[in-house]
Structure formats: structure tokens, C-alpha cells
Design a protein around this nucleic acid. Structure first.
Ligand code: FES
Ligand code: FES
Lengths: 173, 173
DNA sequence: TAATACTTGACTAAAATGCTTGGTTATTAA
DNA sequence: TTAATAACCAAGCATTTTAGTCAAGTATTA
């Protein structure tokens, strides 16, 4: 089974892209800042995402990436498949020959599990994630972070007066 | 997410143990031969399985391992948990702090997935696996293999005259 | 033309994995 | 009593994967 930081990063980055889907494309540098993912690493991931036609790229100043499909058309499984090589949990890759060319005792168990996981992740689209309350909360926090870091810390805090901001300020000092 | 050969080996070995659960204990050397798993590696795995009270050991000649619970009481999840450290697919370990001490965008997605996988694997017991036709077939093949390798190749083949044997002989030469 | 931002490929430190080696200890059958 | 058996234990090791860096591009636009 292959589900590591790579796949998580890809989903996180795609979700970030969906969250900030404006007219203008989103640069990897922005995603890198917000999601704290290494820029060069993101480049590798987006190279694959582009190969799978999940995103499209615009070069030059003001350029960046945009979603190539509607959020409801992009499933989490699709994203992970694009960067990993699938969420297969067999060791034979589905062929059924991991024990000296023959099928091992537990082959079917792992294919069943793989199918289960794939179904689960394939049912969840970016659209679904966008609507989730917990994700909205985190996204808001990140926006504030971003603004606080880069623009005008003092004037902004007065606007954003919810408990979340306060918790955050306490935590970060 | 951590589901690799280690966990698969553990489940396979436990299933082998269940399949050959007689009065006598089963030695790791036997499991090693049948399932083609390195003996020393099996020792490491069974050390952990014993710690979790899934098996018990009998030392000395004629010794080996036995199941410490009924097959219907041992779930696949339990076995994997014993050798891996759980099937968690978050990177924060469930704490929710993988992004510089704060929760990342996709935290809940991964906790949901982890729960899904755990539920699935926790519902499957050794008892269930023992009953499956595909597993029985592989187990039969392995028994034949074992006998063919060790005892009397020529006299035995006449008894075991099913298509499976033939397919197998063709494959192996 | 300079800055921006994607593109590509090679390379690497660190970690995990799967396994080996080389013992020791307990038990039992001869 | 002795030799064989088989569990137990610790250290180390080769390979692979991961997560990331670095460097040298190219296309676009302000
Ligand atoms: S996992 Fe497919 S044959 Fe073993
Ligand atoms: S996976 Fe839990 S906070 Fe990121």
C-alpha cells in the first residue's frame, strides 16, 4: 500500500488550488507558502498532475496553475493515482504472482482492500471537500496567516475577530 | 499509511498457522517453507505477535507456535496492528498538528480514511479467511508443493489428480 | 529586457524495509 | 548425558523509497 506524504501533499495542493480558484491562476510559490510544502517538490507533483490533465499551467509573470476540471469532477483517488502509482495494497500489483510466480494465500484479501479504499477515495471529490466545515476553518486560518505574515498585521486583526483568530494568536505568540 | 510486506507476511503467516492448526504446534521453519518467507524475518514478526498475545510458543523439539485465540476472534486489523504500528494514514498520527503544529487542510480526510480501512480489516477474521474458496485452493496447492518437495514425488501425484495439480506441474515444469 | 513562473533532470540525505548473521536458551528424544 | 531441535534475541546491512535540493533551462509578460 502506497499512501504517503506524496499523495497527501498532492491532495492538499489541489484543494488549495480549488480554494483559491479565481480568474487568475495560482502560483506554486503561493501554495508552497500556504501549505508549507517545498516549492521544488510541488513542481514535481504538479508535473505529474499536469500529465494526467488534472491541472493546466500558464507560464510567465502572473502565471501559475488552474484546475482543468470542475471540482466535482476531480476525485481524491484520481489525484493520488496521478502522483503515486495507485493505491494498490497487493505486492504483486494485482497480477497474483508474488510467491515465486504463484498466488499467495492472502492475495484476494489485498485486492478487496484495495478496491475498498479506491471506492472510498473515488467518491470524494474536491467539491465535497470544499464544502466541509473543518476544511473551511483551516482554510480561513491559513488565509489569515498569509495576510498576517505578508501585509498589514495590525489593521487586519480588527476585522477578523472570531475565536479562531484568537486561539491562533495565542498559539503563535 | 503503513501497509507493506511486513503486515502482509504477518497475516499470511497467521493464516498458515490457522490452516495447520492441529494438536501439534507449527514450527516457523514449516511456515517459512510453505509461504516462502525468510525464517529469521518470521521470528521477528512472531516475537511481536506473541507480545500481543495472538500466539503462544512451545520451545524445544516438536515445538512451534499455536494460535492463542479462536480464529473468529482474530481480525486482520489486529494482526497488522501487532506488527506495524497501526494502519493510520495521517502524517500527524491523529493529533492534528502536521503543519507546523497546526492542522493541515486534509487532516479529516485521512482520519476518515483510516477509520474506513480499520473497520474493513477489523471485520475480517481468520475464520472468514479460512472459509474462502480461493484461499482453500491456494492452501491445497501449497500442501501439495510441500509434499512434492520433501517426501515422495512419484507416488503422490497419482492421488492428487485435479486440474490444479496439472496447471501447477505445467507451470513449474 | 528583466522579472516571473513553469519545466526538466540529476542528485542526495535520511528513513524504512526486508533480510542476514551469529549467537543463546529451553526442551526433548536418543 | 548428549545431541538435536526450535524458540528467542541483538546487531548490522543492502536495497529501496521518500522527500527534498540544486541547477539549468524555457516561455511569457510587464
Ligand atoms: S499479493 Fe497478489 S499474489 Fe500475493
Ligand atoms: S494529517 Fe493530521 S494535521 Fe495533517
Amino acid at each position: 500500500m502506497r499512501l504517503t506524504t506524496k499523495g497527501r501533499y498532492a491532495v492538499t495542493a489541489m484543494l488549495d488550488l480549488a480554494l483559491h480558484a479565481q480568474v487568475k491562476p495560482v502560483s506554486l510559490a503561493d501554495i508552497s507558502k500556504r501549505q508549507k510544502i517545498s516549492l521544488s517538490y510541488l513542481e514535481q507533483l504538479f508535473s505529474k498532475l499536469k500529465q494526467q490533465a488534472l491541472v493546466l499551467s500558464i507560464r510567465g509573470p502572473g502565471g501559475g496553475y488552474k484546475l482543468n476540471k470542475h471540482p466535482q469532477e476531480v476525485s481524491v483517488a484520481h489525484i493520488i493515482d496521478a502522483v503515486n502509482e495507485s493505491v494498490d495494497s497487493t505486492s504483486c500489483g494485482g497480477v497474483g504472482n508474488c510467491q515465486e510466480g504463484e498466488m499467495c494465500l492472502t492475495h484476494h484479501l489485498w485486492t478487496d482492500l484495495s478496491a475498498q479504499i479506491h471506492t472510498f477515495l473515488d467518491d470524494i471529490t474536491l467539491e465535497h471537500l470544499l464544502k466541509r466545515r473543518d476544511i473551511k476553518a483551516v482554510a480561513n486560518r491559513q488565509t489569515e496567516h498569509h495576510l498576517l505574515d505578508d501585509v498589514a498585521p495590525l489593521t487586519l486583526t480588527s476585522n477578523l475577530s472570531n475565536s479562531l483568530t484568537r486561539t491562533l494568536t495565542n498559539k503563535k505568540g
